[in-house]
Design a protein around this nucleic acid. Structure first.
Lengths: 344, 344
DNA sequence: GCTCTTGATGTAACCGGTTACATGAAGCAA
DNA sequence: TTGCTTCATGTAACCGGTTACATCAAGAGC
């Protein structure tokens, strides 16, 4: 037996569909006793409105699409968590869409969102903005999160990786480090590029020696980097890995090599994955509040859907989360997050 | 300017809406040149079909709802990852819904899924099955994942904690352990109860001495348990904690007490949290393939949606992931996952 | 030439809601 | 009583697709 429709309820209650709709949606222009009667009938029939039909006639789905490149790891679960919390507060649902590498298939999949969601949070660092814009329906409100850089001004949210890297280097320098090794992330990755750039800028400005080793964001490349340094007999007093995974790999390798952290070599990562708190020594890292970041994206998107004028690029600067793996400076730098304003 | 509709395309191409629909959906009963012409016009107008309208007339949304109690931690991101992979393979979208503690609000939120999704994967260990069934529309295909136990037979998927605990105990026994200490999880927790039961069964069957200490799934309770054993001067050669957190606590406490792991005492946990690989000695643990678990739920749900008869409870038995914290038996038990058939 | 079949195309109903507008009854003033 | 307003309720159009069925032209068979 299929689900009851509004017409079934109307017939059963001997009223029109309009009255049923009014009764169930709390309209005021209906006689209270009729309203109650209709509600009783609806309950008795186990009537549950068909959201799809409702969305069609209201031209509003109360759903927002979340486009992410991946779901691996805690970053995305935190991001989703923040988005979900905010969305449910605003009465919105979340339609999840993972856009894997293949740009063509993924980009056309954006089309499938039309008529399914009211707007999109798009996190697509792996495709060029041209491809992205070409396939984002212009009438679809959307906010870009950590996407590839582009010329057009659009509603956008971005982690300020440069500022984060600068903050980490400053923290290392404040702890007395002078010869920094940076384990970079994949060359094609925007985040990795920006973190490298921030490191370079800060080292240059502070007069620190900098050595860059190539990594790939995986734990192994941190281990490999330390092995390289060991065989070379290189002199350094700090390792700043472009993400926590690599930092953990480096940390483990240093431990095995009998090098004291942070006494001989300080280690810092980036992202603040939960693991960083648990290992010993606990890892110093930099991070934004990921859940808040996600929530913010949802808030701005909700504004866009409601027609708000919002066309600006907003940066979130990470703060340094100082832990055991680095020497603490006398003045604690963790307290005042550096917030950059909009750049340009 | 709003998006073009199928009627706009029809007018512009001087054909009927039926022809447009046929052209764009690859029907065969249309003249190829007309089909191409319509496609050209559609492209020129930037026509993207309205999925909501399509769903309404097809009575099918190609979307499945995923109900989870939380999004914290790696378990859920892995689960989602597996579901997403499978769903996108089957051409399905994922609508995410987090059902927080408050049963009433969450349970009625299930109603909002009607007409929005074709079926549900429900993971709701925190609410009783009565509440759950009362609010699951009967016509809504759904598969329960690790839900509270209940009498009715339903499509269901469950981690076989009993089998996992048995496997761990067998692994410990194979490594020569004879006096097992089990640190149990919270008494009210289903998983904890089942793991305890498996431990008891296996120890009885294998003739091993078993001592059970109460824990609470937190790291501290592992530490406390070891402290208790120390002050008692108890004799034991293995600790099996009902989850990894407690195992890690126990491991650290043993280390501090100067007890060699695994030589004097073997340690095993449950869940395979990422940390277990990274600590030293790496922790032996038991776990299912979470992503595969999620994917399986989606496959079965897709079957249900297509009308397949599927009313059975399926168990996934964890496999032992043998690492440094236990003595390895001569024949490796990690290779053959023990798969239990349906119980009862 | 006429009928029958075949296949492309158009018309309009339908999916299940919402809501502008029509209707009609009740209340009130003159 | 008549006319006007107010307000609850009903009717039917609409959202944007799909598709059963009607229609019609072309080709086949006689």
């Amino acid at each position: 037996m299929p689900n009851a429709t509004i017409r079934d309820v109307a017939r059963e209650a001997s009223v029109s569909v309009a009255s049923v709709s009014r009764a169930l949606n709390g309209a005021t222009n209906i006689r209270p006793e009729l309203r109650d009667h209709i509600r009783d009938v609806a309950n008795r029939l186990g009537y549950v409105p068909h959201a799809g039909a409702r969305n069609l006639s209201l031209a509003r789905s109360s759903t927002i699409g979340v486009v992410v490149p991946d779901l691996h790891g805690e970053f995305f679960s935190e991001l989703l968590r923040g988005m979900d919390r905010q969305a449910s507060e605003l009465g919105l649902h979340l339609l999840l869409m993972v856009m894997h590498g293949e740009a063509d298939r993924g980009v056309t999949a954006l089309h499938a969102m039309r008529g399914r969601v009211d707007g999109l949070v798009v996190m697509a660092p792996q495709i060029t903005s041209d491809e992205l814009f070409a396939h984002l329906p212009r009438s679809m409100p959307s906010i870009l999160v950590n996407c590839a850089p582009h010329a057009v001004v659009r509603p956008e949210l971005r982690v300020d990786n440069v500022a984060g890297a600068v903050a980490i280097v400053e923290h290392l320098a404040a702890g007395g480090c002078r010869r920094i090794v940076h384990i970079a992330g994949p060359e094609a990755n925007i985040d990795a590029q920006e973190r490298l750039r921030g490191t370079q800028e800060a080292c240059a400005r502070l007069g620190l020696a900098l050595r860059v080793l190539q990594g790939d964001f995986n734990e192994d490349s941190g281990t490999t980097a330390v092995a390289t340094l060991q065989t070379e007999g290189a002199a350094y007093d700090a390792i700043f890995a472009a993400n926590d995974n690599m930092a953990v790999g480096a940390l483990m390798a240093l431990k095995r090599a009998g090098i004291a952290v942070p006494e001989q070599v300080a280690v810092a990562g980036f992202d603040n994955i939960p693991l960083t708190r648990l290992i010993s020594p606990a890892l110093t890292t930099a991070s934004i509040d990921i859940a808040e970041f996600g929530a913010r994206a949802v808030v701005r998107l909700a504004g866009l859907i409601d027609g708000a004028a919002d066309d600006h690029l907003e940066w979130r600067a990470p703060i340094v989360i100082a832990r055991e793996s680095t020497r603490q400076p006398s003045n604690n730098t963790t307290e005042n997050p550096i917030r950059r304003g909009d750049r340009e």
